[in-house]
Computed example of a mutant assay.
Amino acid sequence: MKKLFCFLLLAVCYLTTFAQTDALEIRKVLEEQRTAWNNGDIPQFMQGYWQSDSLMFVGKSGVNYGWQTTLNHYKKGYPDKAAMGQLTFNIIKIELLDKTNAFVLGGWNLKRENDAPGGYFTLWFRKIKGQWKIVCDHTS
């Protein structure tokens, strides 16, 4: 019984360490996106997304599919650095669903010269080829 308890304790510690590492990796992706955005670099910002026609983005205009479509949407909506403003995130929750899927809930805010829009997002991250990528983004 003592050996079983020790084994279970080690297993929990092992899994907790991996969960913490994955959550940190997801936070790193979001921080890299924030930095790219604040540098006015939308193509670099897009590196956090799955480069696939199956990428799903849900926004005020509805559902759009594809990495290139999402890139074009961002470029049209934010044509220059002034329009992009300075982005901040408030990560409310990162929930690892399994070894390759995670759910993220957070808030976003832009600080621009004449306004400060903001809202919320839910992201579905998937670990693809060892890297966490956003496969679905619902931003409001």
Results as ranks from 00 to 15, higher is better:
78 Y>Q: 07
105 L>P: 02
104 V>A: 01
102 A>G: 11
74 Y>T: 03
121 F>A: 02
103 F>C: 11
67 W>K: 05
75 K>A: 09
126 R>N: 13
9 L>C: 10
91 I>N: 08
125 F>W: 04
3 K>G: 02
111 K>R: 14
64 N>F: 00
58 V>E: 05
62 G>K: 07
14 Y>A: 13
28 K>Y: 04
73 H>E: 06
96 L>D: 08
13 C>S: 14
89 F>V: 10
73 H>F: 04
49 Y>K: 02
118 G>L: 05
83 A>W: 02
120 Y>F: 04
93 K>P: 03
71 L>G: 04
126 R>K: 15
2 K>Y: 04
12 V>E: 04
130 G>W: 07
29 V>E: 01
30 L>M: 11
76 K>E: 09
28 K>S: 11
41 D>V: 05
89 F>Y: 15
117 P>V: 10
137 D>G: 11
58 V>Q: 05
29 V>M: 00
39 N>H: 13
61 S>E: 06
24 L>H: 15
34 R>Y: 08
113 E>C: 00
44 Q>F: 01
54 S>D: 10
62 G>W: 01
112 R>A: 08
4 L>I: 14
82 A>M: 06
123 L>P: 08
18 F>L: 08
1 M>T: 10
137 D>I: 12
41 D>F: 04
15 L>A: 13
123 L>A: 13
116 A>R: 11
116 A>W: 02
61 S>Q: 09
139 T>L: 00
74 Y>K: 05
35 T>F: 00
51 Q>T: 06
91 I>D: 07
36 A>H: 03
101 N>P: 03
22 D>Q: 14
34 R>H: 11
76 K>S: 08
34 R>F: 06
43 P>T: 12
136 C>A: 13
42 I>V: 09
13 C>V: 11
121 F>Q: 01
96 L>F: 06
44 Q>H: 10
115 D>E: 12
136 C>M: 09
94 I>Y: 04
84 M>P: 13
